[in-house]
Simulated scan of single mutants.
Amino acid sequence: MLKELLLAIVIYLPAFVANGSAPFVKRGHPIDFYRNFIDKRRIFGDGKTFEGLALALTFGTTVGVILSKFLGYDWILISFVESLMAMLGDMTGAFIKRRLNIPRGGRALGLDQLDFVLGSSLALFLLGVRVNVIQFIFIIVIAFVLHTFTNNVAYRLKIKSVPW
Rank of each mutant, 00 (worst) to 15 (best):
L57P: 03
K48P: 08
I9L: 15
L77G: 06
I137R: 06
S120Q: 06
G128E: 03
E4H: 14
D39S: 04
D74H: 08
M91V: 14
A22F: 07
M1N: 12
N132M: 10
G20R: 05
L13K: 12
K3C: 10
G60Y: 08
V141F: 13
Q113H: 14
D90H: 15
L5K: 14
E82P: 00
L71W: 00
F138Y: 10
T148E: 11
I159R: 02
I142H: 01
K3T: 14
A143V: 09
G28S: 05
T92A: 15
V17S: 00
F50Y: 07
A15R: 12
F95S: 09
T49D: 00
G72M: 08
R41E: 13
Y34Q: 12
P30Q: 01
E4M: 13
T150H: 03
R98P: 03
Q135P: 02
F125D: 06
G89L: 13
F136E: 09
R41T: 12
F70A: 11
W75C: 04
F16I: 13
G28I: 03
L6Y: 12
L88M: 13
G52Y: 02
T62W: 09
L71D: 04
I159C: 02
L111I: 15
F138P: 03
F149Q: 01
A18K: 08
Q135I: 05
K26L: 09
